[in-house]
Design a protein around this nucleic acid. Structure first.
Lengths: 200, 200
DNA sequence: GCTAATAGCGAACGGTCGTTAGGTTAAAGT
DNA sequence: ACTTTAACCTAACGACCGTTCGCTATTAGC
């Protein structure tokens, strides 16, 4: 029917699969993602889809990596222009909140949802989710430490505690957006971040 | 093989199924819960299991209701002894944190995980999850309002905002416990609650 | 004691799952 | 021009899914 693809187009097919898979997994979860439905949506055979990833787990990992990369490009990468410390962190969280708010096919943060889905299922997928979250957590902690050093936050600040609470704000925003569809969620989240990062 | 059960024992069987299902669904999610595995674990036939609920969705709803009831008995019911306002709320959140921490077969809060699982899947299950969360949210808001009336919190307090942030603390605790297995999570969560509920 | 109701079983149903084997076709390498 | 590689296909695999259909055995009501 359609002509064969060149090697250059092959990577494009892979990307096309991942994009579709990302959308599907956003709605149904990473485990609910199904090769058959993916193939139907892409008008390909199941074998043609899975051939690019070897197995379903390979597909899940590829989707996860794509989502992680997307998060990185969307959140911390957009905050590099801001001054290190509370300013950069505030910017990063605002970007994250905006990212969760926009409805580009899905709603909420893919990584956050995947974390909730695989928290009780040992395996490679869970490990990869954890690694992504740890990287983000390290980023937040580092910026908070810088903020303390710059006297933007009190010297006695418990950095780990503050990171914990900031994470809570993001989780609350994610739930408010995805489950409750509350249009005020972004405003609330931004206000909460400000309360945490602006010394009283 | 085994003798038939009386009507009184019938309800016991139902409870036994739900208990097993609750454990299974805690590990695999409400959708990952499977009639076949449930039957194997209970040493029953699939038909014998599903007969009590009519369909898988019926089973999911029953499990959800059981989890909701368990939450109610475990969290707000244990806080009735405390004085309305910040005291009762603090007690309730401490109970919730303890509830999430204990490893009675699972870890974390079942309702919270179910909320994350069904946030993007319209249907009866999602509606029931939302109703349970709304009831809890109303409880928190009511106690916060009482606290403001009692001058335990500043008059200008944004009650909805505070409820949002408290919810975030609980979500962070749930993630820290289930995903990261951080033993410090309960301490962090209690400290965060105190920072929010004790006026500066 | 007889009848009706019901808990639970065994077996099968049509579907879908993830995966594999083999074939076809186009491009790449030589 | 011939061979190799690789993308993608069709077809089938065994396993499991949720659900349904009788059937048996027990209990409850009369």
């Amino acid at each position: 029917m359609s002509p064969r693809k060149s090697v250059a187009e092959t990577a494009a097919t892979r990307d096309r699969i991942i994009e579709s898979a990302l959308a599907l997994a956003s709605a149904e979860g990473l485990e609910g993602l199904t090769i058959g439905r993916l193939a139907t949506e892409l008008e390909m055979s199941k074998a043609g889809v899975i051939g690019h990833f070897g197995s379903k787990e390979g597909l899940q990992l590829a989707v996860l990596d794509a989502a992680t990369e997307r998060f990185r490009m969307r959140v911390p990468a957009r905050a590099v222009g801001a001054r290190p410390g509370t300013e950069r962190l505030t910017r990063a969280f605002h970007e994250w909140i905006d990212y969760m708010s926009q409805d580009e096919g899905h709603g909420g943060c893919f990584l956050t949802s995947a974390a909730g889905e695989f928290d009780g299922r040992p395996g490679t997928v869970r490990d990869r989710v954890l690694a992504a979250l740890d990287a983000w957590s390290a980023y937040v902690t580092a910026e908070l430490t810088t903020a303390v050093e710059n006297r933007e936050l009190p010297e006695r600040t418990d950095v780990e505690q503050l990171a914990f609470e900031l994470n809570g704000v993001a989780l609350a925003a994610n739930q408010s957006i995805q489950l409750h569809r509350d249009p005020q969620a972004p405003t609330r989240a931004r206000r909460a971040v400000a309360r945490l990062l602006i010394a009283p």
